[in-house]
Amino acid sequence: MISVEHLSKRYGRHAAVDDVSFRCEPGTVTGFLGPNGAGKSTTLRMICGLTPPTAGGATVDGRPYRQLANPGREVGVLLDASAQHAGRTGREALAVAAYTMGVDRREVGAKLEQVGLDAAAAKRRVRAYSLGMRQRLGLALALLGDPRVLILDEPANGLDPEGIFWMRGLLRDFADRGGTVLLSSHLLREVEAVADRLVVIGGGRIVAQGDKTELLAGGGTIVRARDVAALRRALDAAGLAVADAADGLVVRADGEAVGQAAVDAGVALTELRPAGGGLEQLFLTLTAAESTKEADQ
């Protein structure tokens, strides 16, 4: 579990991070979102003990990162895929990390295989890696110590669509096995697909956080069916508030509740989606509101 309590970081008069608090629970993926300069990377660096906070603190399983006896065995971190020794091969980079953490060297090959770096790639110098290959190597390093927590900053940068889909499955599987994932990414559709919870930061402050379904349900759900009358009766019977919209019916409930009402009534749906445009629209609305506040100050 990751716990962030009233975390702040000031550089002179500028507050890069201002009283940020949130928790990441085991068995979940938390999407950490915000525009450039919002304070995401600074927050992650403070959690990992790389940047000292001005106020507040952060713990992993109840302890500050710097107090962990063998951090790599408890927390897998990928903050910068380029922060690797360019002269080493991929296999050498993992072997050094395995020795440092006291991990069986047989895990080196297993982790390279897990992230999709074959024998030829493992023998190449890191300087010859593409950005996508460096991301995969960084993930292998993060996973090497079999940690219970992953902290990842833009891990999908440089990956092709197949690689992004692969990463989504890897993170989902990690969380489903009881792990804790804190994921910062600009790829909003991928975050929406994999995250359980969302934390949105703007101007160094938390502007929204909570269960993904609840946050995205704020604008309701758009639903359509060939038999509109039957659909409306089903929604009315379920006690859900319904209104007409240009592209269907808008329901003041989340998609799961709307879909269940349709299933119970035997109504086949042709469309079911968040009325607000999904995570992308939520993100733009929240961060735009924060930018307006800053401009007014």
Results as ranks from 00 to 15, higher is better:
272 L>G: 07
254 D>G: 05
27 G>M: 13
32 F>R: 06
220 G>E: 07
251 V>P: 03
274 P>Y: 09
43 T>P: 05
157 N>T: 06
139 L>M: 14
277 G>W: 04
247 D>P: 06
76 G>R: 04
263 V>P: 06
193 A>F: 03
3 S>H: 05
99 Y>H: 14
164 I>V: 14
7 L>I: 06
76 G>D: 01
16 A>E: 01
295 A>G: 08
44 L>N: 02
21 S>G: 09
255 G>Y: 00
194 V>S: 08
26 P>F: 00
150 L>W: 02
192 E>Y: 13
30 T>H: 09
267 V>S: 03
13 R>H: 09
290 E>S: 08
235 L>Y: 04
177 R>H: 02
64 P>M: 07
254 D>P: 00
290 E>F: 02
214 E>K: 12
185 S>G: 12
198 L>N: 05
210 G>P: 06
26 P>I: 03
238 A>C: 12
188 L>E: 14
150 L>A: 02
112 L>G: 11
212 K>V: 04
195 A>G: 01
23 R>L: 06
233 R>H: 07
137 L>Q: 07
135 Q>Y: 08
164 I>R: 08
210 G>D: 05
178 G>Q: 01
49 G>E: 12
57 G>A: 07
29 V>C: 00
281 Q>W: 13
101 M>L: 15
208 A>E: 12
187 L>H: 11
168 R>L: 05
104 D>H: 15
28 T>K: 13
148 R>S: 14
81 A>Q: 15
20 V>C: 10
289 A>M: 03
49 G>V: 08
